[in-house]
Design a binder for these strands. Structure first.
Length: 331
RNA sequence: GGUGCUUUGGCCGAGUGGUUAGGCACAGGUCUGCAAAACCUGCUACAGCAGUUCGAUUCUGCUAGGCACCU
């Protein structure tokens, strides 16, 4: 005699997006013709982003070379990393840097700060902007590649940092307005920006909040503009992702992940600082310290990576719900 | 073969004759200065059968697993 629960909907597993066949030639045409600022390859961990981005860079280079006739020598595609942990020097195996995969494709934003320090999104936005402009000035095609959703958005969606004091009334007022009106308003405040880049009202409202705030507080800082971005997502099923994560973890353990952590500790980085980095560094450090057995470390870490990958997907779905188009491909 | 104990949701693990622990895993989500973080939500099981009872996951019996010991 079971009781019926009051209609609490059980959220079903989100359906996987439909992968599409992406024609690099068409992508290149679109990029050049429609004034894209950036191509971005994103996806959860272990979905093959890096490999895909490198392949894409090579293909674009080849296509551009074939095209020729654009006057001066054709600049290459270059990759910008959007990974909050691969910025640290000496943390290679645990962050999955795969330095060997890039070949001759230039990469930016890797190994830019020492292990043990604490990098953050503010610095990232600044560094990204600098590198992006660099590539652009050379005529190269920038390809942002990574899995840190917040970093990707900060780079591509015109995040205004730091956070301004919340003003509920203002936000409510803005949210009540029509999106077109909001666009006009934004365009007035930031003439250079293309307000059509804000596909979601929510994001536009946030950007406006900051823009308005800055009118009265001119001291405030780094307002980067949103970039017109072509998003490509590497799509892998849940089961496959899980399997890849497990395999890759074992491979990393064999490649010397534990020694890498020992080395960092021996180099003077306090365990707490290493644990702060999360995942590999957290669990392996705890193992090295004797807090976790090898088997405990291995299974807890595998779980944590699975959960991390899920959160990444949640983030990407959130971007899509905000109107950002992601072109999913089978890597 | 005999005797005793035991059987709870994907896993671990409390508990009660009548609003149904908890943890893990899993799924969904939030998030513009630590994001590989932090946080939120969902997931109602008591081995099977037959009894006792107004009512059994909780009591009784049988059956089937498991564990321990005995000849």
């Amino acid at each position: 005699m079971g009781k019926k629960r009051d209609f609490i909907p059980i959220p079903p597993p989100a359906p996987l997006p439909e992968p599409e066949e992406l024609d690099p030639q068409a992508l290149l045409e679109a990029y050049l013709r429609d004034g894209y600022d950036l191509i971005c390859v994103l996806g959860p961990t272990a979905s093959g982003k890096t490999r895909y981005a490198v392949g894409l860079a090579h293909t674009l280079d080849r296509l551009r070379a074939e095209r020729g006739g654009e006057g001066n020598g054709v600049a290459r595609a270059e990759i910008l990393s959007a990974d909050s942990r691969q910025v640290y020097r000496g943390m290679d195996i645990g962050t999955g840097k795969d330095l060997g995969e890039y070949g001759d494709v230039p990469v930016h934003l890797l190994d830019i700060v020492p292990a043990g320090s604490r990098y953050n999104i503010f610095e990232y936005q600044r560094d990204f902007e600098r590198a992006w402009q660099d590539i652009r000035s050379r005529g190269g095609i920038p390809i942002l590649c990574g899995g840190s959703g917040l970093y990707i958005e900060a780079a591509t969606c015109g995040y205004h940092l730091p956070q301004i004091p919340p003003d509920e009334a203002l936000r409510a007022a803005l949210e009540a307005e029509d999106i077109e009106e909001l666009r006009e308003k934004y365009a007035e405040l930031r003439p250079v920006a293309d307000p059509s880049l804000f596909q979601s009202k929510r994001r536009l409202v946030r950007a406006l909040e900051v823009a308005l705030y800055e009118q009265d507080h001119p001291v405030v800082r780094s307002a980067y503009l949103p970039k017109k971005t072509f998003f490509i997502g590497t799509l892998v099923s849940r089961e496959e992702r899980r399997q890849r994560i497990d395999q890759r973890l074992d491979a990393r353990l064999e490649e010397g992940l534990i020694d890498e952590v020992r080395g960092l500790l021996a180099g003077g980085i306090p365990p707490e600082d290493l644990i702060y980095y999360g995942l590999e560094y957290k669990y392996v450090t705890q193992h090295v310290l004797g807090i976790l057995s090898y088997d405990e470390m291995r299974s807890l870490l595998a779980n944590a990576i699975h959960q991390f990958a899920k959160r990444q997907m949640t983030w990407l779905r959130g971007m899509e719900k905000d109107g950002i188009r992601i072109h999913w491909v089978n890597p």
